[in-house]
Amino acid sequence: METKIRRKKKASVEEALCVACGCCRKVCPKQAIEIWKGVTARICAEKCIGCGKCVKECPASVISLQEVQP
């Protein structure tokens, strides 16, 4: 029998298009996001649990969940 392995996912920001509005930071339950110098959002990969709240919230839709290697 084949077992399905669920890959771990984490949020990642397309920094060149980020508006740095801070919407994502407000909804993050783990405070894993900081607005780096008012230029772009940056996600702390250690804290991110891949819940996807920021992905939904981002008005520019520049955050996506990416699979990470275990």
């Binding site: 508006v19 509005c21 780096w36 110098k37 008005p59």
Partner: peptide, 25 residues
């Protein structure tokens, strides 16, 4: 039409402050 805070994407004040921050960073 889009997401609640879509205005933030093209808000002129936001664009301007981001430009200032980019120059300062």
């Amino acid at each position: 039409l889009f997401k609640p805070r879509s205005w933030c994407v093209y808000c002129p004040m936001g664009t301007m402050t981001q430009l200032i921050c980019r120059a300062k960073a």
